[in-house]
Design a protein around this nucleic acid. Structure first.
Length: 226
DNA sequence: GCGACAG
DNA sequence: ATCTTGTCGC
């Protein structure tokens, strides 16, 4: 099924930021996340010398934790990395890869922020709007906002606040390990975002779907060049 | 003006 | 993200 284009991607940084403010109004972070049988995750990696970009989307069966399907691709980066504009660089290839899936996942976990973004449109939210699919932002580091250090145990959390708003959750996925930054992408609330991440996290800091996407994307780099 | 800044 | 050596710990 083809993805209906929401907008162009070749925008100047100023135009991109303006568009983010408009799109942010369409993001739904009030709906609870329903049952998730098929969980997808996306990740992107680059090579150093050239401008090649590798993207991957994996689909995992929530019950068995087994890989159901995966799609990977290589293409030229068309946008530079600009803090706050990550989706303009990574979303296009992720959407392309997602579009080649045979299955329709119940949720997509993205490596990056959801609404925990200066203009409330991190890559997870942006991709969620394009796909009209529940998405969750799973970032390894902070982009904006402040928080109190969460407790030391797995499951301990602390709200991430930006300009007086709760934009996400700083979540400890493993005892005594640095927390991750979870935020709703689209069609999902804060509770649902934390729930899906906790349910898919094993003995590693990052949840299984994201780890599998990361492993696959690196596997692609190996067999396609570097 | 200064510092911060997902991947 | 990528580069890069050793090192601490299960």
């Amino acid at each position: 099924m083809a993805i209906p284009p929401l907008h162009r991607w070749d925008l100047s940084p100023d135009e991109a930021r303006s568009l983010q403010r408009e799109l942010a109004d369409r993001v739904d972070t009030g709906s609870p996340l329903g049952p998730c049988r098929l969980i997808a995750a996306a990740d992107v990696s680059y090579t150093r010398g050239d401008d090649r970009l590798f993207a991957a989307v994996v689909v995992i069966d929530a019950e068995t934790s087994e890989l159901v399907e995966r799609v990977g691709l290589v293409e030229r980066a068309r946008y530079p990395y600009v803090p706050g504009l990550l989706s303009f660089r990574e979303a296009p290839p992720v959407l392309e890869a997602f579009g080649r899936l045979k299955h329709r996942p119940d949720v997509l976990l993205c490596d990056g922020q959801g609404i925990a973004h200066p203009r409330r449109l991190g890559i997870a939210s942006h991709v969620g709007l394009w796909l009209d699919l529940p998405t969750v932002g799973c970032a390894k580091s902070l982009l904006c906002g402040s928080y109190d250090e969460p407790g030391p145990g797995r499951g301990d959390r602390s709200p991430l606040i930006h300009r007086g708003e709760v934009v996400g959750t700083v979540l400890r996925t493993r005892d005594r390990i640095s927390p991750v930054f979870v935020s709703p992408g689209h069609r999902c609330d804060a509770e649902g975002a934390v729930r899906i991440v906790m349910e898919t996290t094993g003995n590693y800091r990052l949840c299984t779907p994201v780890r599998m996407a990361h492993a696959f994307v690196n596997e692609l780099r190996r067999g396609a060049g570097e």
